[in-house]
Design a protein around this nucleic acid. Sequence first.
RNA 1: GCAGGGAUGGCAGAGCGGCUAAUGCGGCAGACUGCAGAUCUGUUUUUUGGGAGUUCAACUCUCCCUCCCUGCACCA
Length: 470
Amino acid sequence: MPLRFYNTLTSSVEDFQPIQDMVVRMYVCGPTVYDYCHMGHARSYIVFDVIRRFLKYRGYNVIYVQNFTDVDDKILRRAAEMNLTPLEISRRYIAAYFEDFDRLNVMRADYYPRVSENMDSILDMIKRLVEKGYAYESDGSVYFSIDRMTEDVGALSHQSYEALRVGARVEVDERKRNPMDFVLWKASKPGECIYWDSPWGKGRPGWHIECSAMSIKLLGEQIDIHGGGMDLVFPHHESEVLQSEAFTGKKPFAKYWIHNGFLLINKEKMSKSLGNFFLIRDVLKQYPPEVVRFFVLNTNYQSPLDYSDAALEEAKKGYARLQNAVAEIQSRLGQPDGDPSGQDVARIAEESRAKFDAAMDDNFSTREALAEAFDFTREINRLMSGSLSHDELNQIMALYAHFSDILGIRWTAPAGEDVLSSELLKLIVDIRQAVRKKKDFETSDLIRSRLKDLGITIEDTKEGIKIKKS
RNA sequence: GCAGGGAUGGCAGAGCGGCUAAUGCGGCAGACUGCAGAUCUGUUUUUUGGGAGUUCAACUCUCCCUCCCUGCACCA
């Protein structure tokens, strides 16, 4: 079965067929960098990271672009508050972005264009739109004129021009010819400290134009996949389509549009105004990145995802189940080779891989794929009640590595502990073994429970002591 | 108002016109264990918001109703 997924443009699930054979040009709307990234960003970029990983696995040469919006009202406001320049603000939060998303094991994009570094392309695009009669200057600003495109309005959000016009609740801006026109270039207001020169005077770009300009510059006039959060469908992506297609004269601007669902906090929409948002860096103080990724991928990307302590705890346990199996396999690989199981381990792994891949082929159903990982794990745990050869263990491990490559969920935490503490831990565990030998269980349990308080779990098994850190 | 998405077992959350309604968490029982943990087995689960219809057969298709969520001009 070929790879297929939901395309917002056609509101149906379609087989994937890139414009150019085996090359996928993919653009994902990045954050406005005026603050630390929150869990909503985490969800979105983890989802697109997985989509990208899977496309690569399927053999496509993926060119992945994610922008940073570094010129924006909110950044200007933040800059004023913090007494810094807007670009100092954005630079700071871009650095924070990389800290957060590196920890979350999100692969780096091929390009990270920024508005402030692409002003020429943006201005060229606006100029050309004015020349072609799709945009007009008004009071130092430039607006995209909807009038020539009314037939195309609503292509993504599946609404008619009429419906949108009636529903528009924006207060009428005197400078617009049509209330649905949107701004391409904003004239500088007095006192604004960041601006660029343009044929219409000093100003800065509107929000939508940057993505079109940078996408066209880096990926060409038509791309395969354009992604972002569900909230961007309208008006942001809608506007991108209109201005890009007006500019290039080519349709479609993007062949496939993928949108991820919202993050809810205790069943309420997460929003900055409600104050119910969580920063990635705060969540990572409580849960390891693997658990956060597991949590995100345990729900299909289009559904709402409800963030709650209970949900994260559940993710933690689910992840632990998979991780326990991997830890056991690795521990056995560190021991002398055992007898083969007598089972067709290669076949079991092959079938499981096929099911996992099929789930991913079907609209990137990560939850379904994880269900398969759990099925596989149960089967492996059953096998591990007996003997397994290193060869078999390696075959099993290869499949876990595959899960990890696609989902970006690592099975072992990145190294980084210091030698002294690990030696001390070894010492404590040795002492505990000694008192256990003497059947002084009171002391051994005390040691175990005190270590547990420190997040270190000791398990006594037939094969020896297992140490786990949470 | 317009548009879109939902309502599934204690909870989270899949799927499919018929086959045991995935998977995880939780509860209970059993195996293993000094205890705990991990793991395995069984159970919780004839049941899929309400009503009507199509069909040999519907959780899955159609219609109606109720309720929830989201978007409607610069929030991923």
